[in-house]
Simulated assay, not measured.
Amino acid sequence: MTPTTSHHEEAPGRVERVGIVGCGLMGSGIAELAALAGYDVRVAVSSPRSLVTGRDRVFTSLDRAVRAERIGADERDAALSRISFTTDLIDLADRHLAIETIAEDKTAKVELFALLDKTLEDPAAILASNTSSLSITAMASATGRPGQVLGMHFFSPAQRIPLVELIPSLHTDDAVLARAEEFVTVGLGKQAVRSVDRTGFVVNALLVPYLLASVRMVESGVATAENIDRGMVLGCSHPLGPLKLADLIGLDVLHSVARALYDEFKEPLYAPPPLLTRMVEGGVLGKKSGRGFYRYA
């Protein structure tokens, strides 16, 4: 099944119009991915400034993909024609699927899901969260359609990483999970893994303790960031060392996920090391801030 923008009669329950809430690195990446796959994409942001920066981020990424010869100029232009931007959430009213990509703040996400529930007109519309650590059940419980809420966790950069985690809550209908999986695998061409609704899901429950252990090694002077990364790349055939990966993810994101894991499980291996906390407090957030465990141009 290939999504299309032609004026044919819509199949019941079929996802054709996608809404994205937020246009940071994840939101812009998912918007680009869906538009390239042929979906009608509308991105809702919180301010005119966010609209400009988000739109520029999408345009720049697509231009970069053309220069790298991953897509043609005609594909870029077609994708851009399918993406629109708004500062008013009501403009997502006609969407079949809304994907939330705002910051990892449980209160803000729960409030947003309550608003999306009132905004989306299609009674079969799916509400998805790109959270990497927070409770899907809590978000679902804020809506009048908890059976249609699930987690849809993309990995950065969403355009390139082939995996998406699908996380049903205690309430998610099986048919909704199947439709979401079809969108991810058939529509977007990704691979999907399912997880129960627990903090960290599958990937971060394994990845975060590993990344935190590498931070603790730097903190205690066992080895430099460069030597730790070199050891894991050359000794374990990892494509990227843990500290470069932490910088790429964002040290603030890593800190937030670690705190959520520790709050839920109270296991010491999930506790953010003091060095990570101080770096986040100081605005040293990794590649996006120009400095983390490495410096970036």
Rank of each mutant, 00 (worst) to 15 (best):
P168C: 07
V184G: 07
T185A: 10
A93H: 15
S220H: 13
P274Q: 07
T277Q: 14
G24T: 04
G19C: 12
L51E: 14
V186H: 12
A124F: 08
S141L: 15
V41P: 01
L51N: 06
D63W: 00
G147C: 09
A142K: 04
V18L: 15
T277V: 15
I228D: 02
L245M: 13
A65D: 14
G29A: 07
I167V: 15
T107P: 06
V257A: 06
R49Y: 04
I71V: 13
L248Q: 04
G286F: 08
E32K: 11
T107N: 08
E264Q: 14
L92Q: 06
V43P: 04
E16V: 00
G151Q: 13
V193P: 05
V203Y: 00
V52Y: 01
A140N: 07
P3F: 04
L25W: 00
S28I: 03
P239K: 11
Y210K: 00
M139H: 05
L188R: 08
V21E: 12
A213Y: 01
G22I: 03
Q159N: 11
S133L: 03
D88W: 09
P274H: 12
I102C: 11
G286L: 06
E165R: 03
L248I: 10
R14K: 10
G13M: 02
S46N: 11
G241W: 05
T137A: 14
K288E: 05
L245A: 05
S237L: 10
M232S: 02
Y39A: 10
N130G: 07
G290Q: 11
G29T: 00
L206G: 02
V203T: 01
I90M: 15
G235L: 09
V257K: 00
S256P: 02
L163T: 07
F293E: 01
D247Q: 01
F293V: 01
G241R: 01
F113P: 08
V284R: 11
D63S: 12
L254E: 03
T87K: 03
A271Q: 11
A260S: 15
L245S: 02
H153K: 14
E16R: 14
L36S: 04
K288A: 07
E281V: 02
A125E: 01
R49S: 11
I136F: 06
L240T: 12
H153P: 13
D94P: 04
L80D: 09
L248P: 09
T101H: 07
P209Y: 04
N130C: 06
F265R: 13
V110A: 09
G283H: 10
L116P: 12
L261S: 00
T60H: 10
P242D: 13
A297G: 12
R160Q: 12
R198V: 10
D94F: 11
N130L: 05
E75F: 07
T131V: 07
V164R: 06
F113Y: 06
P146F: 09
S135V: 03
L62Y: 04
P48Y: 07
A142R: 09
G147S: 09
V215G: 02
V202P: 00
A142Q: 08
R291F: 03
A223N: 10
M232I: 13
K244P: 01
F155K: 10
S156P: 05
E182A: 15
V196D: 09
R70H: 14
P123D: 15
A271L: 14
P162E: 13
A140V: 05
V257G: 07
I136V: 15
G27W: 03
R216C: 01
P157F: 14
R216H: 00
L112S: 06
T86C: 13
V52Q: 14
L240E: 02
T60P: 01
